[in-house]
Structure formats: structure tokens, C-alpha cells
Design a binder for these strands. Structure first.
Lengths: 154, 154
DNA sequence: CAATCATGTAATATCGTTAGTTACATGAGA
DNA sequence: TCTCATGTAACTAACGATATTACATGATTG
């Protein structure tokens, strides 16, 4: 099944914005993400409504982060996107009359509810600041690898 | 996103089959599930290949359960269906060059992997026998409700 | 104030996946 | 041999995420 990549996409955008002091245009973000500017605006509208980012029109306009990265969790972002459904698997009928199907739904619902609770809790424990730190670490690692390659080549 | 309802559907079918001693035709199952016989056969083919059910052609043919209900977990069924993807949310790129996206993917993967592990473990702890028992209990409850209604009406 | 830049948003197209249908082949049993 | 039932391929329909186009709105600059 085709997956919803908005959460992944929005996080990518936000971290790129965090690297920039100036507002970033939808056009620039779209280029970095290899997509269309309208897609960016659509993804960001929820975040704006929830006060995570601000958008400015006209010259020098674009998108800015408003809150501290350490104060934004992945779960916050997920909710700002409108809590898209997490699972690709579901029940055939919502409130079936068939008692067999009721028993099936009850069992599946319990398992999926547990998994959803765990997932949301995990997302709640990761902040954008942590992601940014991880990115910085990867950047350092890459630099070190390059340095090694240079040494070995000489 | 549209959800994959095959797991729910197969479980429904299997429990209905458990109530019947004779083989059940795809046509009969399709009627109970309000769908098409071909859809049933398609869903069941994986289960047959994994030895959970048997299919017989010709007069008196149809589908039979092979194993004990207590020996089949919901996870077994899930795997027999070919482990369809569980989540409706995913990463934009599989192995991105962008370090920002790598950091995002790593964080999301960890959360989703944990949730998947929990979900599969939960599914592994529920057997078809348990579902069948739950169904029988619901049946008893319904009978009791009806009996009460009759008493109150008299 | 006019030109330009950027967002806001509706309408539409595209693409992939699941579900449903039709058609026909195969095999078992009466 | 006729009928019943599965096995399977091919096609259609429906749905949702993503992409694109078009145009309106508002801010900045000269």
C-alpha cells in the first residue's frame, strides 16, 4: 500500500529550516525535497495553525520556525498534521452485527490500540532538537570519513 | 488512507468455518462476508500454502480447517497473508543521501519498529481458539439479553 | 502606485493499491 | 458426461496520496 510520507517530509523541511536564520521560501524547500511548492504549503498549513511555524508573504518572505526545537516533539508534528491514520490494516466493518466479526474486531482493536499507544509515546519522547543533534553528528562523521580518505590517498 | 482488510476478513472466514463440520464453499463464505467468491479464494490461497486450511474441488468440496484452532495465532495468519505492510505512514526515501533525511528516517524507523514488534507480539499471543471462545461468550450474552427481554415483555 | 515576490487555495490530473467482476481452465464426484 | 467447486489471469472500479495548474491575496520595493 502506498504510504503517507507527510510526517517524514515535514520533519525534513523543519530541520532544513532550523539550519537557516532567514525565512525559507516554499520554492526553496520544494527544491530540496524534490517536490512542488504547493505540496510544501499544504503540508505546512497545519503546522502554522498550531503555532510551530510562521509564514510571511512578499519580498524576503517564506517560512520560519517559531518555537524552540527542544519544545517540539515528533508527536506534536504528527498531531499538527491532523493525526493521519497510522495503520495500513483495519477492520472490514466498523460496527458489525455478526458476532464473529465483533470478536475479531475486538481482538484486532486491542492489539492495534496498544501498538498505537506505544508509537505515540515514542514519538512524544523525541524532539526536533534531538533530530538536529543527530544530524550534526552525522555531519561530523562524514567530515571525519573524508579526512581519513584524504590521508589514505596521500 | 484506504486500509487493507484482508486480515480481518480472513479471521472472520476462519471462525465461520470453525462452526461448520462440513467443507464450506467460497460462494457460501462470500455471501456471509458480502463479497465475491474470487476474493475469498485469493485471501485463502496463502493460508492453504501455509497448511492452515485445505481446499477440495468438486461435489461436497470447499474449504476446511486443518490445524487446531488453539495452534493458530493471529500472527500466523498475518504471516500467511504475506506480511502486508502494517503502517500507513512511511519515509519519503529509502536510503537518502541527505543527512537531514537520514536522521529523520532513523528516528521514525526506531519508533515504528518498536510499535511493530509490540503489535506482532500481541498478535502472536492471541489464538483462533480464544477468538472462538469470545464469540461463544458473545452468543451467550445475546441469548441472555433476549431472555430478559422476553421476561420483561410478559 | 505599480511591479514583483511569496503565500493561500481550489480544481484537476496522475499513480499505486485494494477490492470487485468476468471469463475460462482444471479437477472431483454423482 | 454433467455438474460443482476451486485456480487464476485479466480487467474494472474506487480510493487516497502526491503533483500540477491557475488564480487570488497580501507584503515589499522602487
Amino acid at each position: 500500500m502506498r504510504r503517507d510520507t507527510r510526517l517524514s517530509g515535514v520533519l525534513h523541511v523543519l530541520l532544513h529550516m532550523a539550519e537557516q536564520k532567514e525565512p525559507v521560501t516554499s520554492e526553496a524547500l520544494a527544491k530540496a525535497m524534490d517536490t512542488n511548492a504547493v505540496v510544501i504549503r499544504r503540508m505546512m498549513s497545519g503546522l502554522r495553525d498550531h503555532g510551530f511555524v510562521r509564514s510571511e508573504k512578499g519580498h524576503g518572505g517564506g517560512w520560519c520556525l517559531v518555537r524552540d526545537l527542544a519544545k517540539i516533539s515528533l508527536r506534536d508534528i504528527y498531531e499538527a498534521l491532523g493525526r493521519p491514520s497510522l495503520f495500513a490494516i483495519g477492520n472490514r466493518a466498523q460496527s458489525p452485527k455478526c458476532l464473529v466479526e465483533q470478536a475479531v474486531n475486538a481482538a484486532l482493536d486491542q492489539a492495534f490500540d496498544d501498538a498505537e499507544a506505544l508509537l505515540l509515546s515514542r514519538l512524544g519522547n523525541v524532539t526536533l532538537a534531538m533530530l538536529s543533534a543527530d544530524f550534526q553528528k552525522r555531519l561530523g562523521d562524514r567530515r571525519n570519513r573524508h579526512r581519513l580518505e584524504i590521508v589514505h590517498a596521500s
